[in-house]
Computed example of a mutant assay.
Amino acid sequence: MSTSSPAMAFVASLSALILILTASSASAYPSSSLSATAYEVLESNNFPEGILPKGVTGYDLDPSTGKFSLYLNSSCSFSLEGSYQLRYKPIVTGVVSRNRLTNLGGVSVKVLFLWLNIVEVERVDDELEFSVGIASAGFSIDNFFESPQCGCGFDCGTRESLRLRGGLASSI
């Protein structure tokens, strides 16, 4: 009986350790259904929600490191004011912290004829600085208070109202 007692104690200790590790890893990666929305996480880090398109279906976030994965139903692309084309892959990754998004993956912008990955976004006062690694550009934060919609950006209502009035074909 005394020979099985140390073995039983070892199994009980090992089981307790597994339960503790499982519980701690679950709290390090909270389910998006139990936490704030992706847009609220951005706002809590001093970013406007409009840097993400409408339609985020979920995300994973490690609050201790800021590493995240963000999920969309599918690839998403749109033009902004006819001058910039943006593309989001179905999964966007990176690290979020106060005033900074770094190590971004899954977001690109078309510059001339090339698609360049946006690798970092930094908020400096009332501007957002977007970096593609070798170059960056700053834009007023006022441009990002509303989230664009996949496919049409901010022109969705305008295009829809033109189509309903029969004016879309003549405006193309």
Rank of each mutant, 00 (worst) to 15 (best):
L104Y: 04
F130K: 07
R123G: 09
L112V: 14
E129G: 04
V111N: 06
N99S: 07
I118L: 11
V109H: 03
V109R: 01
G105C: 03
V121S: 03
E122V: 10
R100E: 13
T102Q: 04
N99E: 09
V95Q: 13
G105A: 05
V124I: 13
T102R: 12
G105P: 02
L116I: 13
N117C: 10
R100P: 05
V109C: 01
L101D: 03
T102Y: 00
N117W: 02
I91S: 07
D126T: 07
D125Y: 09
R98T: 15
D125K: 14
V96W: 00
K110V: 07
V119P: 04
T102S: 15
L128K: 12
G94C: 05
D125L: 15
V111A: 00
V95N: 12
F113P: 01
D126H: 09
L104P: 09
V95T: 14
S97W: 02
I91Q: 14
G106W: 01
N103Y: 04
V119T: 13
N117I: 10
V124K: 13
R123L: 04
V95R: 10
G105N: 05
V107D: 03
S97R: 02
R98Y: 07
G94M: 07
E120C: 00
I91T: 15
V109D: 14
D126Y: 00
L128W: 06
V96T: 03
V95L: 09
R100W: 12
S108P: 01
E122Y: 01
E129W: 15
V111R: 07
S97T: 15
L112P: 11
V119E: 06
V92T: 06
I118P: 08
L101H: 03
L104H: 04
L116P: 10
R123S: 01
L116D: 07
E120F: 00
W115A: 05
D125C: 06
L116K: 10
L116S: 03
D126Q: 11
K110N: 00
T102C: 03
S97G: 08
V124T: 08
E127N: 14
V121Q: 01
N99M: 14
D126S: 09
E127C: 04
N99D: 14
V96A: 04
I118Q: 01
N117A: 12
V109E: 06
F113A: 11
V107Y: 02
D126P: 00
F130C: 03
V92A: 13
R123D: 05
N117H: 06
L112S: 12
K110P: 04
G94N: 08
N99Q: 11
E120D: 14
E127K: 15
V111M: 05
V111Q: 01
F113V: 13
F130Q: 10
G106P: 05
V95C: 00
L114S: 09
E127D: 12
I118G: 04
G94V: 14
V95F: 00
V96I: 15
I118K: 02
L101K: 06
V107G: 02
N99T: 08
V111Y: 11
N103C: 04
N103P: 08
F113R: 08
D126L: 07
W115L: 01
L101G: 01
E122R: 08
R123V: 11
G105D: 11
F113E: 13
D126E: 05
F130L: 13
V111D: 02
N117S: 14
G94Y: 14
E122F: 05
L116M: 10
R98P: 06
